[in-house]
């Protein structure tokens, strides 16, 4: 019996060596875009009105001061502000890892994989981003205290770019491991 080679051939559509067609790639991109956008908008509009926001900012300031103390520096937190020497770093929502986590969570949740993998991906990615953000904040407070001339550039450009890169890397790693 001759096998018909074409789009309707079931052997081309199934099996472990299936090559995803172009439209599925585009559809996946659209899903990721929609998911991360929904995550971002949901966070921006829900958390900004939520009572959790001050707690989140206080916790971030406290964790940053704690990390600086571990390094042997006399840093402390006053509410949402981290104090090191004469430098006072006030935390805002963009200082937390909330935006990257929301965006990546949206992208992961929209990926076509079993829910268990999505859940483990969200948890792992969130932990990586939280850790990366704490390191970023610690370095920024150190730069604010000791390299105040370069603080603005480091804060608004370099640290922002590196945090975005960490988010992209986490997403790429997860997709290579989990999405076929």
């Amino acid at each position: 019996m001759r096998t018909r080679i074409g789009p309707s051939d079931p052997n081309l559509r199934k099996g472990p060596g299936r090559t995803p067609p172009l439209w599925s790639g585009l559809a996946y991109g659209a899903r990721v875009l929609a998911g991360s956008m929904i995550g971002l908008i949901a966070l921006a509009f829900v958390l900004s009105r939520s009572a959790l926001k001050p707690d989140l900012l206080r916790a971030t300031a406290h964790a940053t001061a704690g990390m600086l103390s571990i390094l042997g520096l006399a840093a402390y937190s006053e509410g949402m502000t981290v104090v090191l020497g004469g430098f006072r770093g006030h935390m805002i929502l963009e200082c937390t890892a909330a935006f990257p986590i929301a965006i990546l969570t949206g992208a992961i949740v929209c990926s076509p994989v079993p829910w268990r993998r999505r859940f483990s991906g969200v948890v792992t990615s969130s932990l990586i981003l939280l850790a990366g953000n704490q390191i970023r904040l610690t370095i920024l407070i150190l730069c604010g205290a000791y390299l105040s001339d370069t603080f603005e550039v480091l804060h608004l450009l370099v640290a922002q770019a590196l945090m975005s890169l960490l988010t992209i890397w986490t997403g790429l790693r997860w997709i290579v491991k989990n999405v076929d």
Binding site: T19, L33, S36, F99, V176
Partner: peptide, 28 residues
């Protein structure tokens, strides 16, 4: 303010999309 984190959304979506599209012909 959403325009600032929007750059992360576009970067992530474009990188993941291109990863998937670019690897289209590869079996493994």
């Amino acid at each position: 303010g959403i325009l600032s984190p929007w750059s992360l959304v576009t970067s992530l979506a474009v990188c993941l999309l291109l990863l998937r599209v670019a690897l289209r012909p590869c079996r493994r």
